[in-house]
């Protein structure tokens, strides 16, 4: 279980990006974090995946623990070896490497060879489209395919917690639906998911629990279905009915959070 308690983070000692955030991702659960630009979503993820230092940020106070052990002070590679892998915002696949090499790069964080081999078979089974394009330069894939590759690459390290930073960014509504389905499949296989999104419709459809961040603080939290029904979330993140209908391709998802 990932536990964040009273986390304060600042950049350069000046800009306070997080002001006392607490949240939990239970084993095997799916948790969504919503919030607009500057709410602190990326900072939260950087803290968990230990890349904060690359952005000259530092934890001021608070704890981040994974299975009861603190994640503070680890480097990013060590965090991956403990089973937490993040799919970065904007996909960030290695465009000059082939599809297969991208997956190999993802497997560098795996504990051993056997895990890596099994993970690769699993990824290719999950995304047959990638198997067909093994030798292709990853930069030549479409946006949706690149997102699948980015997710597949992260799965190569066989994570127990998969973090996704805005996976629906810049994708067509239909592809967003596919991403949602992929997240459900990954979770069904036992991997916990922490999903950070501006696209609240997809996120609330997939997640069991959700948190809403506002200027570095948790302004709302609770079961995703309840949260989706609140006036604030409706107004701020879901908009009117017409936009939600476009963004959600599966009818089942719609009924869950409107009922």
């Amino acid at each position: 279980m990932l536990e964040v308690r009273e986390l304060h983070v600042s950049y350069g000692g000046v800009v306070r990006a997080l002001r006392g955030i607490s949240l939990e991702v239970p084993d095997g659960g799916v948790v969504a974090v919503l919030g607009g630009n500057g709410a602190g979503k990326s900072t939260l993820l950087r803290t968990v995946s230990s890349t904060l230092r690359l952005h000259r940020g530092a934890v001021v106070s608070g704890t981040v623990t994974w299975d009861g052990r603190s994640l503070r002070g680890l480097d990013a590679a060590e965090t991956v070896r403990r089973g937490i892998v993040q799919v970065p915002e904007g996909r960030r696949i290695f465009g000059r490497l082939s599809v297969d090499e991208n997956l190999k790069a993802g497997g560098l964080g795996a504990r051993d060879k056997r895990t890596r081999g099994a993970a690769r078979d699993r990824v290719y089974a999950m995304f047959p489209m990638l198997a067909e394009r093994k030798g292709l330069r990853a930069g030549l894939l479409s946006g949706g395919q690149q997102q699948m590759l980015a997710i597949g690459r992260a799965l190569m390290a066989a994570p127990r917690l998969l973090i996704l930073d805005e996976p629906s960014l810049g994708l067509a509504p239909q592809v967003v639906g596919q991403v949602g389905q992929v997240i459900r499949d990954i979770n069904a296989a036992g991997t916990a998911v922490l999903l950070v999104e501006q696209n609240a419709t997809m996120a609330l459809g997939v997640a069991a629990t959700a948190y809403v961040l506002d200027v570095g603080e948790v302004s709302l939290s609770g079961p995703a279905a309840e949260l989706a029904a609140t006036d604030d979330v409706q107004r701020l993140y879901l908009g009117d009915g017409s936009t939600t209908a476009v963004a959600v391709p599966t009818g089942a998802t719609l009924s869950r959070w409107q009922g």
């Binding site: 995946s49 990013a76 892998v85 960030r92 090499e101 790069a105 560098l108 795996a110």
Partner: peptide, 24 residues
């Protein structure tokens, strides 16, 4: 080799490589 792939991945996007567990 793993080193070669880690090298090329890191050269292209250091942060993404770190997120994949590449020991820089």
């Amino acid at each position: 080799s793993s080193w070669g792939i880690a090298m090329r991945a890191g050269a292209e996007d250091g942060e993404a490589a770190a997120l994949m567990g590449v020991r820089r």
